[in-house]
Each structure stands twice: as structure tokens, then as C-alpha cells.
Design a protein around this nucleic acid. Sequence first.
RNA 1: GGGCACUUAGCUCAGUUGGUAGAGCAUCUCGUUUACACCGAGAGGGUCGCAGGUUCGAGUCCUGCAGUGCCCACCA
Length: 715
Amino acid sequence: MPEKFLKPYDSTVTEARIYAEWEKSGLFNPDECVKQGVTKADVPTYSIVLPPPNVTGRLHMGHSLMLAIEDVFVRYKRMRGFRTLWIPGTDHAAIATQSVVEKQIKKHEGKNRHDLGREELLKRIEKFAAESHDTIVSQLKTMGASLDWSREAFTLDAERSRAVNTVFKKMYDAGLIYRGHRIVNWDPKGQTTISDDEVVYEERAAKLYTFRYSKDFPIPVATTRPETKVGDVAVAVHPDDTRYKKFVGKEYDAVFCDVPIHIKIIADKEVDPSFGTGAVGVTPAHSQTDWDISDRHGLSHEVIIINEYARMTVDGRLKDKKTTEARDMVVEWLKSEDLLEKDENVTQNIATAERTGGIIEPLPKLQWFIDVNKKFDERGKTLKELMLEPVRSGAIKIIPEHFDKTYFHWIENLRDWCISRQIWYGHRIPVWYSGDEIIVGEAPTGVDWIQDEDSLDTWFSSGLWTFSTLGWPHFAETAMRGKPGSENDFANFHPTDLLETGYDIFFFWVARMILMTEFTLSTIPFRNVYLHGLVRDAQGRKMSKSLGNNLDPLDITAKFGADAARMALVVGNTPGTDMRISEDKVRGYKHFANKLWNIARFVLSQKHAGEIKENLKTEFDALSMDITNDIEEFRIYMAAEKLYHYLWHRFADEIIEESKGRTEYSATLYYILENSLKLLHPFMPFVTEEIWRSLPTKDSEFLMVAKWPAQHAVE
RNA sequence: GGGCACUUAGCUCAGUUGGUAGAGCAUCUCGUUUACACCGAGAGGGUCGCAGGUUCGAGUCCUGCAGUGCCCACCA
């Protein structure tokens, strides 16, 4: 028995060494596995593309959870003999990264992006992104993730940019990408538009004011934003509202807080007669609903009264005032003119920007959109329909299943996707203008062409991730299935087998991947979607900087080992459900790693001889099959728990105890140990690999490519 | 307003197709028997939210109710 077993298991000296040996072996690369003869060349493939972490800093426990789950499937499939590929990568995360760097620069140098200029800011961001990238990569390795580093990708590198431009052009040519002037979600803080999905609503206390535009105006109107009323062009009432019927069609002039306005009274069935006074002041340029109403009645959208900095643009006392100040001033004015009828306290859902927290100002702007309702190619389907079909048919399976209902519901409510952003970091929109001419896709030659200033929503490139990482479009035509080499990845590994991510980015990302892949390739991006929940603290609170309740994955792995962290994250953690984690929980699995260590110590102290006991072998093989089925059916939370329970309370507490002083057990003990290490390897790769080293006989040098002990029931 | 889920032992949660309730942690008692005190042996503890229904039989299926959480829409 090796001397190392005389001391308790020490993850700190073992894990880094083992990972380095795995990396050196090249076995994370499926081509290398074939070359070394541990995987057959003609077997089915299994592939996962890592959800790329944002290059905004360091990883959190949610990332650790993602890695633990994905590595379980990847290691399991590799041991089962599949040509298994797990591709690493990072995400430039346009808005998120730029705003982090801008904040830093503001703090340390007091400068904003315009002080630096596009080129200099990009340089700074790239430097920051590179540093984040290195931190992230080392964290991924610390967790034991068996990623093929030779294929690492970045959403903003040359290959991925080529994919982005190619898809953009294809969508433009199909008439799905268009430029339109309409109300968008403008974030005055981030100085950019954002998509509907990036808007989060916060409940806040507000006041609902009831007022009249002037003394002789016949209808009182209720609003929570009095300052926007200088931009009103109409008052809408319900067509059947008997109180107001007689005024419909009449027009009035007034001077509202120094601003001359012209109001037409119109009837529209969208107005709820029971809310407020049953009359809506219509501000076409600063509200989506009002824009739509004014469209239906042929009213102008031209009256713009708020700018990109959320300041008033009208003449008079409100000029250049922030909207919040202007609100108070308008209320004061209404009071002094005796036009305010009442104010009530109400709670209001206020739209804010997910990244910056800025309050969204709806503004009319010329932006790029993806049309989700237009029938486009020979299939005669809309993007919405293309998104629905694979989930409805079962071609894509979502785990847990009930999320498909949420998915359908989300698609029903989906509107055109605004994809242009007024930030500098990211994929610049591949459109060039010269006079009235426009070129899309690739940069034209000649000096007269000016590229669009905007960049693309970061989710545009993330949406291509399953195939942009596999050599599309460069090798898509020539890739050959069954042939090794990354130039054949697209044929070998797409569609991918599993997409594993948090349910919180289900819409942002998973839905967009289905959209992009169905459009571009007429196929699915992945066969299965496994959604994990949020990692919360011991009290069930979200982990956050402000609460100071973050667990740092690096601290946790340093203290208890990556194996322990992985088990703590996986055991009993059902998909789609939030989980709680605490140091105590992780400590429990550190103890388990040590228990396993001591099991090995005991078994290895026995002479390997004699026959394997049939009843114990039968019992173990049944467990082995059970674990295998659990993993196949995505119940890794159960598989992990069963292994824990068997090894500790059956193997150690009963079988080993029984065997003491009885030499005829030793072959059985070796049999169980060897195969338990295999079953446990996907969950606790380090300690199992380290014990494997010391087995007297084994079927493979590395446990990570040893033969899985049970075949799946369906085979 | 629309949708989705959850409610099982003190706490955190499992319970795959219906067959007389499980785990981890915590608690209590005992044990220092050389693989392991990062240990072992044992114990207590649940009318499975409430009310109906289907069934020979329901935590598991159906209906209703209550509470909790999340997502989407956003009403001026």
C-alpha cells in the first residue's frame, strides 16, 4: 500500500497535479482519444458547448454548478466510449463588459467614453477582457472541467465574427432583418437601446395625478408622468363611453406649462373606461401604447419632448430639465393654475435596464430589428413558428419538462427583436452606407463607404454558439462525418447533445439559439436542454455583493476541494429548482472524499486473491445499472446520492466490516472498489483518479478513459 | 391581467410508471473494537397544505380551496 494513504486525503496537493496530468495526456480532445486507442474511431459522438462565461471578472457558484453538471455528463459519456467533445469559450458580453470598464475609468480617471474615444476605449476593454479571460480559464480548470482547450472559442474572435456577419447577411437577404423607426427601450444611463428581454420591472410607489390641460378642456385626464403631457397630441376615450361621446372629434388648443399644445379627442377601444377618468392623454413619441394609438388615428409621431439624456427638449421653464425635476415643476404649475383635480398614491411597475439599473425612457429611434412574424423562405414559416416546432415535436427535450409551457407562453408574447446597440464593444453592424446605397455582410472596398456606428446585441452572437464554435461557416461545406480533426467538427458534433444552463437565461439564450439555428441551418442546435436553478445561500437568499453572502468558488475549492464542491452542488439538486449551499454542506462531502480514501486504504491493505462473491457482485451490478440509467435519464442528483449512500453505509459500514479478518472477501472488495471509482469518477474526478493510480490491476492508465462498468439498459 | 411551479421529519430536500413514507444535516443515547473521530452502533421525530373524487389501494391521478415563489404583459 502506497504511503500516501497513511495520511488523510489532501485535495490541495492532489487536484492541481491531477488536472495538469490530464491536460498533458491530451485526453480531453476526442481526436487524441482515438489516436491513443482509448476511443474507437467509428463510434457515435457526444458534444456539449460550454455556456461561455462573460469576461466581466470572475466566476461565481452558479458557474461552478454548471461545470459540475456538464462535466458529469461529459466524463460519463467519455467513459462509455463516445467520441466526446466539450468546447470551452468565453463571451464578450458587450454591454456588461463595457459598462464595467467604463465605471472603472470613471472612478479612477474621471473620464467618460467620449473623452477617450472609440479606439482607446476598445483597447482598454480588450485588455480587461483578456485579464478576465485568464482568471476564468484557471477557475474552470480548478473545478476539474474536462474541456478540450485546443478548441477554445471567444464570441468576438475572428471565426465567430465571420459567423455573425454571415448570418446577419442571410437574415437581411431573407427580409427578416430590417431597419425601422419606432419606439425602443432607451437606457439613458447606458446610453443605448436594449431589447424587451433586458428590461426588468420594479415595483415602486408613485402618484397618479388627475388634471385638465386648461380651464376650458372638457375631460380630466389621469397620468403618472405629468411632464410628458407637454408632448400630448390627443386624448383617447372608449368609443362607448357615454360621458365623453359628445366630445369625440373636437380639437383644443392650450398652453401647457409654457408649451403650446394641440389636443384632438379620439375614440379607441383599447382605452379602459374604468381606469382613472377613462381618458388617456396620448404622447405618441414617448409611449409604445400611445404610438400604436396614434398610428390607428393617423396622428403625428413627431412631437418629441425628451432626449437621450432623459432631459426635456421643449422651450420655456422646462427646457433642459431632467424628467424627474420637470415632473415636480409641472405639478406645481398645475396647482398654481388650479388644474390639478387630485393625486393618489399608487404602486407602479417601472421599467429599468437590467445591466445599468437606469430607468427606461421609451424613445422613437431608427434601429435594426429581427422580424419574428414574417413568413420568409420556401418553408413559408415565421421565426416564431420555427422556434415552436422542435420543442413541440420533441426534437428538443427540455428538462424539467414543464418549462416547455413557459417557452410557448413566451413565444406567444414575443415581438420583433431590437438588435442594434449604441455601444462600442461588440460586433459592429456589418452594414456600410454610401449615399443611398447600402452593402450588407462584408466590408466593401473604396473610401466612400461608412460603416454603421452601432454594434449588435451580444445575444446575436451567443445565439450562434453551438455551430460557430464548430467551424461554421468556414468548414461547414467540407466537414466530413467520421473524420477526425477540428475541421470536421461541424459534421461530427452538430447538433450538440446537451445544452446545460440556468433557467434565468432560458429566454435570452436558449430561445435565441433555437431561432438562430433553425433559421441558419434548418436544424436544431441541441437535442436536450438541462436547466439548473439558482445557487442560493444557506438562508435561501440570492447571493449578492451587497448582502456579502457570496461564496467564492476558489475559496470553497481551496478549503474543501473541487470534488467536495461538485458533490455538494450535484447531490439532491433537481433541475429547474433553486438550491441552497453552505460551507457545512461542502464540508460533508470533503469528509466523504476522505471516507473513500480510507476505504481504498483498507482495501489496498488486503491481498488481492480468491473469488468474487456472487451475491455481492449481483448487488453491486444492479446498483451500477441503476446509476447508469439515472445518468442517462438526467437524474444525476439521484445517481450521486445513491453512490454516496452505497459507498458509505453499505460498502464501508457493512461489507467491509463483515470482511474484517475474513480473507475470502478480498477479491470482492477489490471488485467493488475498482468499479465504484468508475461510477463515482464523473462526480468526484480528482480523488477517484488519485486512488485509481494505486490499484494493482486496472484496465486503463487514466480512470477518466477507463471502461464504464455497466451498459445502459436500452443497449 | 396571463402563465408556470411549489406546499412531505426541527432545517434543506428526494420520492422516475399509484402498492402500507426516505436521505443529508440537526437532536438524543452508547462506543475510542487499528481503514477512517473528516469514525462507528442505535434512537426519537411526519394525519405527505386543506376539502372532495377516481381506485382493491394515492405523497403519487382528477377537481376545488388556501398559502408561497417565479416568469411574462404592463393601465394611462
